[in-house]
């Protein structure tokens, strides 16, 4: 596919609209489902951008994100936000973030940033050329994450291990001796 810009713009506008709904809706269930729709659109965008590895991972992770978020919000019988919006604070923060976005666009636009569709690929050229002869792995991404840059994956496994351990420790009810820990 030569020109993917129309599809990409459509998906990005869909993602922005979905995020607005997710942020501004008053029902937490609607917010969770909207953010999941954004994630699935992101998966399709990865597929258009030539990254099937990431698309598969994003798709299956998104299903788990949806299940975990629903588990966290819906079953806790409090899915609606009753309080009205604080209009002044909302307008002030919107102005602030709009100015932040504008200045960021100015700064990024003035530097020599590579245009869309023309990556630099200084390091990756070596990986693409020597990936198959050096590691015998036909999938270049697999050869990078598990051979050239396996330290990244080791650190990632450590972070995942620590975060899951933290979640289990937070959710644990029984102490070491087996008695129920009284919470507050």
């Amino acid at each position: 596919m030569e020109n993917i810009a129309p599809q990409l713009y459509t998906l990005l506008v869909f993602m922005v609209v979905g995020s607005i709904i997710a942020i501004e809706t008053k029902n937490l269930l609607s917010a969770v489902i909207s953010v999941s729709a954004v994630g699935f659109a992101l998966s399709i965008a990865f597929l258009f951008l030539g990254a099937p590895d990431i698309a598969i991972t994003q798709l299956v992770v998104e299903v788990l994100v949806l299940i975990i978020l629903i588990r966290g919000t819906i079953l806790l019988d409090n899915t609606a936000i009753e309080k009205g919006r604080d209009t002044l604070a909302m307008v002030a923060s919107l102005i602030f973030f709009g100015m932040l976005l504008g200045f960021g666009a100015l700064i990024f636009g003035s530097t020599g940033f590579p245009a869309f569709g023309e990556p630099l690929m200084r390091v990756s050229k070596v990986y693409v050329q020597t990936g198959l002869p050096a590691t015998y792995a036909a999938n270049i991404v697999a050869s990078i994450i598990l051979d050239f840059r396996a330290y990244d994956t080791l650190g990632e496994a450590t972070v995942l291990f620590a975060s899951i351990l933290g979640a289990l420790a937070i959710l644990r009810r029984t102490g070491k001796a087996g008695e129920e820990v009284v919470s507050a």
Partner: peptide, 13 residues
Amino acid sequence: GHLTPGGGFAGGV
């Protein structure tokens, strides 16, 4: 995972 798109993370999930 080393021949086609995929790998340990996606398959594990």
